[in-house]
Computed example of a mutant assay.
Amino acid sequence: MRYELTDLRLFLEIAQARSLTAGAAALFTTPSAASYRLKNLEQALGTPLFVRTPRGMELTPAGDAVLLHVREMFEGIERMQGEVSRFISGLKGHVRLVANSSSLNGFVTQTLGRFLVAYPGIDAEVEERQSEDIPAAVLAREADIGIFAGDTQVQGLRVQPYATERLVLVTPREHALAAQRSIRLGAALDFDFVCMSRSSSNFLFLRDTAARHGRALRTRLHVHGFEAVLALVAAGVGVALVPSSVLAHRQQAQQVQVVELDEPWALRKLHLAVRADARFPNFIDACLKFLLDDPVVAATRAPPP
Rank of each mutant, 00 (worst) to 15 (best):
Leu206Gln: 06
Cys287Ser: 07
Ser245Lys: 12
Ser197Asp: 03
Gln155His: 06
Ser197Leu: 02
Thr219Asp: 01
Leu189Pro: 10
Leu206Tyr: 06
Phe193Gly: 11
Ala235Asn: 03
Leu217Asp: 00
Glu174Leu: 14
Gly225Gln: 00
Arg158Ile: 05
Arg215Glu: 13
Ala176Val: 15
Ile284Arg: 12
Asn202Ile: 05
Leu177Tyr: 07
His271Ile: 05
Tyr162Lys: 13
Pro172Cys: 12
Ala216Asp: 12
Gly214Phe: 10
Arg275Ala: 03
Leu169Val: 11
Arg215Gly: 09
Ser244Trp: 09
Leu272Gly: 05
Val223Lys: 01
Val259Ala: 03
Arg220Gly: 07
Lys269Ala: 11
Pro161Tyr: 12
Gln153Lys: 09
Asp190Lys: 10
Gly238Asp: 02
Arg218Trp: 08
Leu267Met: 08
Ala231Pro: 03
Cys287Phe: 11
Glu263Ser: 01
Leu221His: 14
Ala273Trp: 00
Pro172Thr: 13
Glu174Lys: 13
Thr209Met: 12
Gly225Trp: 01
Val233Thr: 10
Gln180Val: 08
Glu260Gln: 15
Gln155Ile: 09
Cys287Ala: 15
His249Ile: 06
Ala188Ser: 06
Val256Glu: 00
Leu206Ile: 09
Leu206Glu: 01
Val258Ile: 10
Ala253Trp: 00
Asp262Glu: 15
Val233Phe: 02
Phe148Thr: 09
Ala273Met: 00
Ala149Lys: 06
Ala163Gln: 07
Leu232Asp: 08
